[in-house]
Design a protein around this nucleic acid. Structure first.
Lengths: 110, 110
DNA sequence: GAGTAATATGTCGCAATGTCATATATGGAG
DNA sequence: CTCCATATATGACATTGCGACATATTACTC
């Protein structure tokens, strides 16, 4: 990791992106992020769960308990309509941010 | 801004990049970042100055007071040899990080 | 020579938030 | 029966970004 702080700032974007396609539960989200980033990004569960509650409280995602025989109960989160808007905004914000950083850290010739 | 947290994580990379070419003072750095990012990134002095001290303490940059008639004294920071190494590492770390985020937030088809 | 804006550096305090450690519960592997 | 992976949860602790404030110098205007 470049810096653990970066992870924090991008956490919401990652979660919203992952629950966009289909509802997912917390543990699955943490594993997905770790796997798809090839270990570059890693979530501490003590950070992830409170973050999920926060996103739900803001109305961006909605959780639902699912009980299945032979499995511990899971809470699946899906993206709300409001969350979809936020996700779109965060995506473009992310692009803007990356472009801004690149403009400054490269292109240094002045 | 996507999130104010992201700024923090990239702050070191930005500063090191800016003092790479030539020594710069704190105020100049904050103005440069704001201008070159078209206002996307903005530094609070309460974050910037402590960060400069921290980078100096780590030996990545070196500050020097410069007094000039008709100007308030300024502290110019230059990149040290050690800082140059760190900058290279942070640059590649940044690329890796961006790639990881993009892999997760796009490519969502599973 | 008073007022004020821009330049330039510095810091106090706290709300927000990540992390460590720990707890609970289930199923499969050895 | 122990250990590990899955899965959610939280209390206590540590960190830190930043709003707000303070100070100093120069240039400009009226």
């Amino acid at each position: 990791m470049l810096d653990r702080e970066l992870k924090k700032g991008s956490a919401e974007l990652l979660i919203l992106s992952l629950v966009e396609v289909r509802p997912r539960h917390g543990y699955e989200i943490s594993k997905l992020i770790e796997a798809r980033s090839d270990g570059v990004l890693k979530f501490n569960v003590a950070s992830l769960y409170p973050l999920l509650y926060r996103l739900e409280k803001r109305g961006w995602i909605l959780g639902r308990w699912v009980e299945k025989a032979g499995q511990r109960r899971r809470r699946y989160y899906r993206l709300t309509r409001e969350g979809r808007k936020v996700l779109a905004a965060q995506r473009s914000g992310w692009e803007e941010f990356v472009a801004a950083i690149n403009r400054i850290t490269r292109a240094e010739s002045a």
